[in-house]
Computed example of a mutant assay.
Amino acid sequence: MHELSITESILEIALRHAAGRRLASVHLVIGELSSYVDESIELFWKELSTGTAAEGAVLQFAREPGELLCLDCHQRFPVRSRDFICPHCQSASALPAGGKDCYVDSIEVFE
C-alpha cells in the first residue's frame, strides 16, 4: 500500500507546479525495479485528486529500465532476466544501480 504515499506526493508536486491552473495530465517515470503498480497509483489518484485542480487529470506512465552493478567487475548492465548474471564476467553478485526511481517528469495544464 506504499502507492498511497507516493500518490499523495505526486499530487502535491503536480498541484504546486500547476500554480492554481487545472491539470490536464501528469507524466510519471517509474523504474522497472521499483515495486510501484501503475493501476494502484491510478486508483489512489482518482480518490485523492477529487475536488482539486487535478481532478480528471490523466496519468501517463513511462517505465525506466532496470540496471545492475556487478560487485566483481564493477560494470553496469541491464536487467534481462531474474538470474542477474553479469554479461561481462558471469558473476552473480550484483546490486540495483538504476530503475528504482519514481518521479514526476512533467505536467500539462489547461490554459
Rank of each mutant, 00 (worst) to 15 (best):
V37E: 13
S34Q: 01
V29S: 14
S35R: 06
G51R: 07
R22G: 03
L15Y: 08
D38I: 06
K100D: 06
I10S: 13
C70M: 10
H27K: 12
L71D: 15
V104K: 10
F61K: 07
V58L: 07
E42S: 14
A14F: 05
H27S: 12
S91P: 05
L59F: 11
T50G: 05
P87F: 05
L33D: 00
S81P: 08
L11Y: 12
P65H: 14
L43K: 00
E64P: 02
Y36K: 04
K46F: 00
S9V: 07
V109M: 06
I107D: 00
R21K: 14
I41L: 01
F84D: 14
S34L: 00
Q90C: 09
R22V: 11
G99L: 07
G56F: 03
I85P: 03
H27T: 11
E47Y: 13
V58Y: 02
D83F: 11
I41W: 04
A57H: 01
V26C: 04
C89K: 10
L33C: 00
L48K: 10
V26D: 01
T50M: 05
A94V: 12
I30G: 06
R16C: 02
A14W: 03
A53L: 05
P78V: 12
R63N: 03
Y103T: 09
S9K: 15
E108D: 06
L28A: 04
R76C: 13
F110K: 13
I85E: 09
L43P: 00
L33I: 00
Q60F: 06
A24R: 14
L68H: 10
R80Q: 15
S93W: 15
F110D: 11
L71R: 13
A62C: 07
E39Q: 07
K46G: 07
E3G: 14
G20Q: 07
S49G: 02
I41C: 08
L23A: 09
H27Q: 10
R63H: 10
G66W: 13
A62D: 12
V37D: 09
L69T: 08
L11V: 09
Q75S: 08
I30M: 14
T50Y: 04
E12K: 09
L11K: 12
C86G: 11
S35I: 10
I10G: 10
K100E: 12
A92N: 14
S34V: 01
S106G: 05
A24P: 00
A97G: 12
G31H: 02
V29D: 11
T52L: 07
D105P: 11
L68S: 08
A62V: 06
G20R: 04
L4K: 09
E67H: 09
E108F: 01
Q75E: 13
P87W: 08
R76K: 12
I30N: 04
D72P: 11
V37F: 10
G56E: 04
R21P: 02
H74Y: 11
S25M: 03
G51L: 02
I85T: 14
H17R: 12
H74I: 04
A92G: 15
A54Q: 04
A18P: 06
A24L: 05
S91R: 03
V79Q: 14
S5G: 00
L23M: 01
A18K: 05
